[in-house]
């Protein structure tokens, strides 16, 4: 589904990603872990097409298509979804209007008919249940005045609605207490399927207790220095990032 090969990216003059290689197959969940400044969020942003990054080398292909030349909306229309670490507040932009515009933009790009108001509302109420969200969310402006937990739930709610093929969760656990974390993780798990892949970007092992990954990659200084199964996350938790750093340098 996603093949990343020799990916290098800069912010300004500074190189942040220094040659990444990994492959995500359909239905797999990959965790990307690493200390602050390792390039985790940069990877998420480069894949989703955020401005401000320059790819200097390498490729990223999504179901055979070169992802890096596409606009952010084209990537989303192909089935890529980014759950933001810091969901953006859009005062004045009504949530229902926003969700409908997003869903119908994606449907239209695939040659599907736009959903009418009634079918849309039915669909949306069904998806709200997955995240234990209240109807009142629909009347509010996108993320405006939401608590940290509400914002993160709203991200996963959007993911449930847009049904992406590949979701990138960028530090979805940051700022969540244990109860909110469980709700968000339950939502993510409900969306697991053999056709849907996920990349879970996180600093802490904690989230992976709830969302069990198939693979764990450790990112440090812009490179994947270790890859393994979910046990790697536990080992990392136990020994800390210092261990990987030392090992990485020793290797």
């Amino acid at each position: 589904m996603l093949v990343v090969n020799g990916l290098r990216a800069n912010v300004g003059e500074k190189e942040i990603l220094k040659g990444l290689n990994f492959t995500v197959a359909a239905g797999e969940i990959h965790a990307i872990m690493g200390p602050n400044g390792s390039g985790k969020s940069t990877l998420a942003h480069v894949l989703s097409g955020r401005e401000g990054y320059t790819v200097t080398a390498g490729t990223a292909t999504f179901n055979g298509q070169n992802l890096l030349t596409l606009e952010p909306e084209q990537r989303a229309q192909l089935g890529l979804f980014l759950a933001f670490q810091y969901p953006v507040e859009l005062p004045g932009v009504n949530n229902t209007y926003f969700l409908k515009a997003a869903l119908n933009s994606i449907r239209k790009s695939r040659g599907e008919a736009e959903l009418d108001a009634v079918s849309f509302l039915r669909l949306i109420k069904e998806k709200l249940k997955i995240l234990h969200l209240d109807d009142s969310l629909l009347k509010r402006a996108v993320n405006a005045g939401f608590s940290g937990g509400e914002k993160k739930r709203n991200e996963i709610f959007q993911m449930a609605l847009l049904e992406p093929k590949l979701a990138i969760l960028d530090e979805t656990d940051s700022g969540l207490d244990i109860d909110a974390l469980r709700v968000v993780a339950d939502g993510v798990n409900a969306l697991r399927s053999s056709e849907r892949s996920m990349i879970v970007v996180t600093h802490y092992q904690r989230l992976l207790d709830y969302i069990q990954p198939d693979y764990v990659h450790v990112l440090a200084k812009g490179q994947i220095i270790r890859s393994g199964g979910k046990e790697l996350a536990l080992e990392l938790e136990e020994k800390g990032y210092g261990w990987i750093d030392a090992e990485g340098q020793a290797a």
């Binding site: 989303a76 933001f84 004045g92 932009v93 515009a101 869903l103 933009s105």
Partner: peptide, 24 residues
Amino acid sequence: FYLRSRGISAPLARRMLCLGFAGE
């Protein structure tokens, strides 16, 4: 970027943000 990352085209996203600004 937030709107575009949800599949919404840049022109529509701009219009939505302007309308949001005017909406108040």
